[in-house]
Every structure is written in structure tokens, then in C-alpha cells.
Simulated scan of single mutants.
Amino acid sequence: MSVSLHFSEIADVYKFFNIDKPLKHPLVAVVDFSDVDESVEENTRISGDYYCLLFKRYDGNNVRYGRKVIDFNHGSLMCIAPNQVLEMETDIGAYTEKEGWGVFFHPDLIRNTSLQDKMNDYSFFSYEVWEALHMSEKEKQIFYDCVQNLDNELHENIDQHTQNVIVSHIELLLNYCARFYGRQFITRKSVNSTVVMHVEKILRHYFSGPGLQEQGLPTVKKLADKVNLSPGYLSDLLKKETGKNAQDHIHYYLIEEAKNILTGTDKSVAEVAYLLGFEYPQYFNKLFKQKTGKTPVEFRNLN
């Protein structure tokens, strides 16, 4: 039987890990996993109203999260957004030799700060848990030092500078996440190239076959599902490899097929739009001009 747990406050994290110490700041916490009890029943679903960065390592076994097995023997970092569900199918309480840390912060902590405006840029919060960041020993040390500095600040007396300093420490951690994910995309270039080729094959088949008439315009989510990645991770991977995100790739093949139909048939622009899966021809006109600099009629007349 599955169990669902939802934490609304940072204090709930302390209760979950049986941490018996005062919470100095109600909107942020740092947890050292090496000295807490985190026994979790099998088939437990966990979510919260806060962001968290989790770095964990369990010696001797893998841990299953959702549909994927995550190898934590060397340690991985997961970045989890509010209300994202973490499904745990293995009793992690069985692993006694574990280490790592967690940083938990509530959106209210960064509300009306410059960091709040940047959160959408940290696309790794939309990745699935199996797309965790695998760090080198040097990168782990950099993260650990940042976490220690944040933890030290949380033990200081609160004054008028406390929130700005805490938010700055968190922003530094997120910037390192962005840098190290960028490195991971580079070091996995051969694997990523295979994904790119698979994506292009899927789109070619989709636009040359009956997919448009049967399913309508492809979405980033549908494309990501076909290559077993999250939409955010796929878009970032494609951007690193080709300079175009997933939506750009879809639009490229869409416009190329539109050009083929416009120059190879005498169908009206409205018929072309419907054929390509658009419910409203004006949306097709707008996208076509945005991508080519010409309306469909102007393009047909020139070709």
C-alpha cells in the first residue's frame, strides 16, 4: 500500500528527520543526512511546498525513485521544486552507511528578491529525479563548502542582514548547479548526440506521416516522453547540442513541411494550416511569418 506525505512547512522537515533542535529560521533549513533517522516505508510519495537540493550517497545498494533506479553509490544531486512528487519504492532506512545533505527553502524566503526573478532560469528544477546531477569530487567539495557556509549563517543571530546573506548563499548554490549541469551536458556528449538524432528521426517521421492528422501538433512533452526525458531536460540538452530548444526543433520541422506543401500543392493557406494540425489558420500565419519573415502567401509567390 502506498503512503503519501506532504510537507507544508520547513518545520515538517525537522519532524520527518527527527531533528530535535531549534529552527532559527522558519523558511530555510540544512540537514546533514549522516546523523539523522530517515527511515521511509516502501512505496512512499513525498512532496512539499518548498524547494530542496538533495545530495545523497548510500553505500552498497541502489535506491529506486519512481520508475528509475538511481545509483547513489557515488552520490547525486537532485533539485526538486515545490509540489514535485518524489516516489520512493525502496526502504531507504535499510541503508545504515549513508551521507549527504539537504537544503530546503520556502518560496516565501525569496519572495520580492532578485533571486525570485531568476528562478525560472534554473530549469533543472523541472527535471525528473532520474536526471540527477552527478558530480566530480571537486564539485562535491565546492557544494559542501557552500552548504557549510549557509548552515553557519543559520546558526548566527538574526539581524537586518540575515535574509540577504541567506538568499545570497542559496543563489550561489543554484548558480553552481547551473554550471555543473552545463558540464554534465558536455561530458555526456556522445549520449546526447544519440538523443538528438532520435529526436530528429521522431520529428521527421511525425511530419512526413499521418501523425499530424491523427494527433495534432506535437508538443514538447510528447516529444520528451518518446525519448524518456523530462521536457525541461530535453530542451536544455538540445539547446546545448544544437543551439535550439525542443520547441524550436518542432517549429523547424513544422515550417519545413509547410514550405513543402505551399510550393508542392495548390492548397489554400487555410487548408495547409488545418493539414499541419492548426485549429486556427491565423496562428499558422503568425508562426510562419515569425520564422521566415514572410507570410505563407508571400513565400508561395516567391517560389
Rank of each mutant, 00 (worst) to 15 (best):
I110Y: 02
V129F: 13
D108P: 02
S114G: 00
M119G: 01
P107C: 09
G102D: 08
M119F: 06
V129G: 00
T113M: 09
Y122M: 04
G100W: 03
V129L: 14
M119K: 03
F125T: 08
G102T: 08
D121E: 13
W101T: 05
R111L: 11
D121I: 00
V103S: 00
V129D: 04
E131K: 08
S123H: 10
G102A: 13
G102R: 05
F125A: 03
D108G: 10
S126C: 02
N120W: 04
W130L: 00
T113V: 07
K98S: 06
Y122S: 01
L115H: 07
N120R: 11
L109W: 11
F104A: 02
W130A: 07
F124P: 01
N120E: 13
E131M: 10
D121M: 05
Y127D: 07
E97T: 11
D108E: 15
N120F: 01
F124V: 02
D117H: 04
G102L: 12
D121W: 05
Y122F: 15
H106P: 03
K98H: 12
Y122K: 01
L115T: 11
Y95T: 01
M119I: 14
E97V: 10
H106C: 07
K118D: 09
R111Q: 11
L115F: 10
D108W: 09
T113D: 03
N112V: 03
K98A: 08
T113Y: 08
E99T: 14
Q116N: 09
F105V: 08
Y127F: 15
T113W: 08
H106W: 11
F124Q: 06
V129T: 14
G100Y: 06
W130H: 15
D108C: 02
E97Q: 13
L109I: 10
H106K: 13
N120Q: 12
E99P: 00
E99D: 14
R111G: 00
L109E: 09
W101N: 08
E128M: 11
L109M: 12
F124I: 05
T96G: 08
P107G: 07
T96E: 13
V103I: 15
W101D: 07
F125M: 07
N120I: 06
V129A: 11
